[in-house]
């Protein structure tokens, strides 16, 4: 088995979770209503937990401790898609991002439960149930708000248009994609994207939101190869603010 390919896969999954968890946690205390405030905080905790689980597998493969990996790398060493690093914006953007990302994530976790690499399959099986609730939350809110007031529909439509190029970046293939498929570790980004598209269409068709024609959109790629927007490094600096006072200290 190619360990480099495996690590690449693990890093992109873990980094997605860490960065989106961090962004979702920014809603704590600022939600549009207490219930959503709590929901985003709760999902943030799950995402953090998920990233930790994957960083632990990486550690077993010889990478540094999860705290070191998460709190000391620079932006160009991160493999997350650019979608997750964008600022939280207003609630409509955060909800759309959550909807687009978690509908992909549940499928990714589902695929990973069948991974030939057992530690991944185990973790995915254990955590899939939590992602299921994230999807349930996203789909419920999208269905409800997406067929409510003109104001809500307009906001969500704008955010959907804005987020979609970045969402397509979730499925940016790594140079190891074919190898991972061949070894039965991961079924590949293309298959993932096809299923994802079907699922989000199903939800959007029950709303007044329109999915833009994907052929007219240029995906925002680069994240999987360490190319990021200007928003990631400040996020990482903030995350490391206390940790970097003394990285050897026990906090």
């Amino acid at each position: 088995m190619n360990t480099e390919a495996l690590k690449d896969l693990l890093y992109k999954i873990a980094d997605d979770q860490l960065i989106l968890g961090h962004r979702n946690s920014e809603w704590t205390g600022f939600g549009p209503m207490l219930e959503e405030d709590i929901a985003f905080s709760s999902m943030a905790q799950d995402k953090l937990g998920h990233s930790l689980a994957f960083y632990k597998i990486l550690h077993e493969l010889g990478e540094a401790e999860p705290d070191t990996v998460a709190f000391t790398r620079n932006a160009n060493q991160f493999h997350n898609c650019q979608l997750v690093e964008l600022p939280i914006g207003e609630y409509d953007f955060s909800l759309i991002r959550h909807f687009l990302f978690d509908n992909a994530e549940i499928l990714r976790f589902d695929m990973l439960t069948r991974s030939s690499y057992e530690p991944i399959a185990k973790v995915a099986t254990k955590l899939k149930g939590e992602v299921k609730y994230h999807v349930l939350h996203a789909n419920t809110m999208i269905k409800q708000l997406g067929s409510s007031t003109d104001e809500a529909i307009e906001r969500l439509q704008n955010s959907l248009n804005e987020a979609l190029p970045y969402a397509l970046g979730i499925f940016e293939k790594s140079k190891f994609d074919n190898e991972l498929i061949a070894e039965g570790i991961f079924e590949g980004e293309e298959k993932l994207q096809t299923q994802w598209l079907e699922n989000i269409k199903k939800v959007l068709s029950q709303t007044h939101l329109e999915l833009p024609d994907l052929n007219t959109i240029t995906p925002k790629f680069g994240g999987r190869y360490g190319e990021h927007t200007e928003h990631l490094q400040p996020l990482l600096d903030e995350m490391a603010e206390v940790f970097s006072i003394d990285p050897t200290a026990e906090w």
């Binding site: 939600g31 549009p32 207003e90 609630y91 708000l145 007031t149 104001e151 809500a152």
Partner: peptide, 13 residues
């Protein structure tokens, strides 16, 4: 900033 969400959830579908 969250007022539109509360308005939308109260609106008839």
């Amino acid at each position: 900033k969250g007022a539109w969400v509360r308005r939308a959830l109260l609106a008839p579908k």
